[in-house]
Amino acid sequence: MAGPKIACIGVIGKADNPLHVSLFPPYSDSTIEFSFLLNSCLDIFEIRRKHTSVDQDLGLLQAIDERLAAYGWMTTTGVKLLIIVDLFGQDEGAGSSASPAISGLRDSDLKPAFRALQSAYIQLLQNPFYSPDDHTPLPGHTVEPSSACQQISNPKFAIDVKRIGESWAPGIAVM
């Protein structure tokens, strides 16, 4: 059996607008499904923020099915980092005979990936040519895919996210 692998990384703005979404094989063509999954996690962020003193690391947000689980991290600026993990990895045949326990993947296994993702985002913010205001919807406007706010198109950030998604594995301490 292949180990757990990252299926999707999402960076969601403080106004719940998608800033960046990366999909990893075999899910590269599942944009609509993962957009829905990422959006469904936003309610969980909001509930936890209202009812608890939220730490940056929110851990498991939801088990989507026996294969996929969503984990979350909130930056101090309100930007939400989401990682959806394929618990079977790329072993397509494992779903019929094996059933991984979500508890087999500890929340701490994803901390290095979240820290690396947050570092990549901080480096993006330090870029003098990047303007976070270009990626925030105007007040009073609803967030829709066709809205005026832009997604992050910085090539270095995209490469960093891809590296994180492709190199993460449970037990890696530093990325």
Rank of each mutant, 00 (worst) to 15 (best):
S108I: 14
S99W: 11
Y121W: 15
S119W: 08
A94Y: 04
S97K: 13
Q90E: 15
V85M: 02
I102C: 09
F88C: 10
V85P: 00
Q90R: 14
G89E: 09
I102R: 09
S119R: 11
Q118L: 13
D86K: 03
Y121E: 09
A120H: 03
A98R: 15
A98G: 12
G89T: 12
I83C: 07
D86G: 09
Q90N: 13
P100A: 08
R115M: 02
D109I: 01
D109M: 10
R106A: 11
R115Q: 11
E92Y: 00
F114E: 01
S99K: 13
F88T: 04
A113I: 00
I84D: 00
D109Y: 09
A120M: 07
I102N: 11
A116S: 12
K111D: 01
Q90W: 08
S97Y: 14
S108D: 13
G93Q: 00
A101Q: 10
A120R: 01
R106N: 10
G95W: 09
A94F: 02
D107K: 10
P112R: 03
G93A: 00
D86F: 05
Q118M: 08
S99T: 15
D91Q: 09
A116Y: 11
S119P: 00
S97D: 10
E92H: 00
K111R: 14
A94S: 15
I83W: 10
S119N: 12
A101I: 06
I102W: 07
S99Y: 10
G104I: 05
A101M: 10
S96H: 06
Y121S: 06
G104V: 04
R115I: 08
D91P: 00
S99P: 03
L110E: 03
A113F: 10
F114W: 07
F88M: 13
I83G: 06
S108N: 13
A113L: 04
A98W: 15
P112D: 04
L105T: 05
G95D: 13
I84Y: 01
I83V: 15
I83S: 06
G104Q: 07
I102Q: 09
F88A: 05
I84G: 01
L117T: 02
R106P: 01
S108F: 13
S97L: 15
K111T: 14
L87I: 08
K111H: 12
A101P: 07
G95P: 05
S99F: 10
K111Y: 12
A94C: 10
L105E: 07
D86P: 10
D107E: 14
F114R: 03
D109Q: 06
A120K: 01
Q118G: 06
S97F: 14
S97W: 12
A116L: 05
A116H: 04
G93R: 00
V85E: 03
G93P: 00
G89N: 12
A101N: 13
D91Y: 08
S119Q: 11
D109L: 05
